[in-house]
Design a protein around this nucleic acid. Structure first.
Lengths: 203, 203
DNA sequence: TAGATTGTTAATCGATTAACAATC
DNA sequence: TAGATTGTTAATCGATTAACAATC
């Protein structure tokens, strides 16, 4: 119901509020916006999605707003995920401290390489890809993270869909085809770079 | 001049055209769109930014369009970059094969940790952070990639700006403040996850 | 009180979709 | 020719910005 663009900004607000020292009790739309490169107008508009109300001349109550955003973004709800592809990127993600802090639990990584099976990436065990589907089904995994090469990404996505995940986070540089009930987010690494270089070269 | 959203899609088109077998000589807007989850209408609209023209009943000439997109996106122009932060994510990026394929050269990585200095991530040498500014100035580096923790990201960004990079690709979960002439792309890893979990949980 | 800041409505802007004549 | 597909214009949609009355 809340548009994605708004959700993204709500999460930015949340992160910023978390970073404030505890003695800061009020924050104005202007302050919030300036810190994040967003106009104060837009911040106030976004706030209409929150039940937390501001006060003229004071702004918004930091603690209350932060807690409310935390609830809206469901940050307290634990979510189980698996990683497919235990290469360097997979390993980096498995160890990303932000995940645990936000109640995101990567239960296992899967790989085709027999040399990797049985090892760990961080403290995440690497299992054979053949066990992916039964593992997902048994462990209430709702999110699959794809960090395999582009050539096998679709195949992995199909396996994840079959095993019942509701969302896929794709780091392979391809567009995945999945049924409507599965949400996909493409994180096309190279694309960011291309855009940056174009911008930088044009100046 | 071409809007970012369009540039992103042009790159998707390019990637798709590259993946086609050589015997495919023509591609219609419908085909292109279907493969990428984009409407044919929008594909044709995007094509108005290209000088390559399509033909009624045939579509667009694959080879010509691909070459033209390659030129528009300046994929042949080599670009030098440096990596700041030689942790797991930095290491994953240093070894990402797509960069070299797209003429993106990561010349060096920088880190504060003396244990890392002198080693390599992939075939990229790790240098002390104190040498960052002089290295960037001497080697015509136009892009800095930040993979340090959030707490030191702004400091690193300031160093990069001082040394004259024109673009910054930021993987730390903070909003960076930089002058107008520097382009920043934030790749806030955790944000993608948060959005996915909300979508998946709401269904 | 005066002034800062909210909450909300109206105006603007830009991107996508729809429609359709032109064309091979 | 008939039909598929382009290129382009108009309509729609949604997001951001501007404006301003309400309020503490």
């Amino acid at each position: 119901m809340i548009p994605w663009v708004v959700l993204e900004r709500l999460f930015l607000y949340y992160t910023y509020l978390e970073s404030l020292p505890p003695e800061v009790e009020w924050v104005s739309s202007q302050m919030l916006g300036d810190a994040l490169g967003i106009s104060g107008d837009l911040v106030r508009k976004d706030m209409t999605y929150c039940t937390t109300k501001g006060k003229p001349r004071q702004g918004y109550p930091v603690g209350q707003l932060r807690d409310h955003l935390r609830e809206m973004l469901k940050l307290d709800l634990p979510v189980n995920a698996v990683l497919v592809g235990a290469g360097r990127l997979g390993s980096a993600l498995a160890n990303y401290p932000g995940f645990r802090r936000h109640n995101m639990h990567i239960l296992a990584a899967f790989d085709v390489d027999p040399a990797k099976v049985g090892t760990h990436v961080g403290d995440v065990p690497v299992l054979p890809i053949t066990e992916l589907e039964s593992f997902v089904t048994r462990n209430d995994v709702c999110c699959g993270i794809i960090t395999v090469p582009a050539s096998s990404a679709q195949e992995v996505a199909d396996m994840l869909v079959r095993s019942g995940v509701r969302s896929i986070w794709n780091f392979a540089p391809v567009s995945l085809r999945v049924p409507h009930h599965v949400v996909v987010r493409n994180e096309n690494i190279i694309e960011g770079f291309i855009l940056l270089r174009i911008q930088a070269l044009e100046q």
